[in-house]
């Protein structure tokens, strides 16, 4: 187990280096001139632009720029944006919000999704099952920006203006604590939640038909134990795989939700940096997301061993 862990962590290093190279190259190849982008639609003053290009080595070749970046990185220096802000500062400002949002969303998605799926699977064809199927279909078919705006308007604005209930903040404010994350996390989690519920339902129904479940029932075990201990543990494997991969996309893919609720997180930072062609920020953020993906995947792989006793790591 320990050796397996170390091997996996060592494997992550070339993945990371390769990824930074690739992403740096891609952002280098992005169309447009980052200095002109700073000036918006007015033409950047030629001399100011030339001085900035020199300052940020934008005239150098790709390899020399990449070398410059990576050698600074090894000294713990993430570089500077073209407006003179430390990239590390920008990332650490944004990261906690995204992390908190992703965790709340992840919990909602995992707990509610799995519970709904179990209930639907155990009452196949009954009202509850139909309800879960219908409501998840509805959630899947509504785009996030629609559900986001509707929830913001109804629970944020109208609830306060018409009923005087100021519980859900319209936009994110740190001082509201976890309350500030509830609405955005719900919006962010909604689609995945629906998938998790459907996945759990199908997977559990399938395992319920397995031989060892029939054996357990025949042995006279109580239903709770048959479902919880024998069926569910096996049924959870595809769900854990999905959830593990989803944690990464919750973090990197929350651009729209973050924008609607004015959370200045990683998604927005990444989108803005791509737009502005800020290579150093793009690489920094993406590397961080890769680490999150790698760690989430590792945790998923370790969880397999917990769920299925046949899986062993050495």
């Amino acid at each position: 187990m320990g050796r397996y862990l170390i091997r996996r962590l060592i494997q992550a290093i070339p993945v990371l280096i390769g990824a930074t190279f690739l992403i740096y190259w891609l952002s280098f190849k992005l169309p447009g001139d980052p200095i002109q982008a700073l000036a918006g639609e007015k033409k950047a003053d030629p001399l100011v632009a030339a001085m900035l290009r020199e300052k940020y080595h934008l005239n150098d070749s790709f390899l020399s720029q990449y070398w410059n970046y990576i050698s600074n990185l090894f000294q713990g220096n993430f570089g500077e944006t073209l407006t003179g802000r430390s990239v590390w500062d920008k990332i650490t400002e944004a990261f906690p919000y995204t992390m908190n949002l992703a965790i709340v969303a992840f919990l909602i998605e995992a707990v509610v999704g799995v519970l709904a799926g179990i209930m639907a699977a155990l009452r196949r064809g009954k009202f509850l099952d139909q309800l879960v199927l219908l409501s998840t279909l509805l959630v899947i078919s509504i785009p996030v920006f629609v559900s986001g705006f509707i929830l913001q308007l109804t629970l944020g604005v109208q609830l306060k203006n018409s009923w005087g209930i100021d519980f859900f903040p319209v936009s994110f404010n740190e001082n509201d604590g976890i309350r500030a994350y509830l609405l955005p996390a719900l919006v962010l989690a909604s689609t995945s939640l629906a998938y998790v519920a459907r996945l759990t339902r199908t997977s559990l129904m399938e395992t319920m038909r397995a031989d060892y479940v029939r054996t357990a029932t025949a042995k006279g075990l109580p239903r709770r134990r048959v479902v919880g201990r024998h069926a569910l543990r096996n049924a959870l494997i595809p769900i854990v795989t999905f959830l593990g991969a989803d944690l990464g996309s919750l973090m990197g893919g929350a651009v729209i939700t973050e924008k609607i609720f004015n959370i200045h997180g990683i998604g927005g930072l990444l989108a803005e940096s791509v737009y502005r062609k800020e290579g150093t920020v793009i690489v920094g953020v993406v590397s961080l997301l890769i680490i999150v993906y790698l760690v989430a995947n590792l945790i998923v792989d370790l969880l397999y061993a917990v769920l299925d006793p046949r899986i062993r790591y050495a």
Binding site: F149, Q152, P169, V170, S171, K259, I260, N262
Partner: peptide
């Protein structure tokens, strides 16, 4: 207060935030 979305700012204005 820093916003990157005017729609959100407008909703905050409507509820006098």
């Amino acid at each position: 207060k820093i916003y990157d979305n005017l729609d959100t700012a407008y909703n905050d204005l409507r509820s006098d935030n």
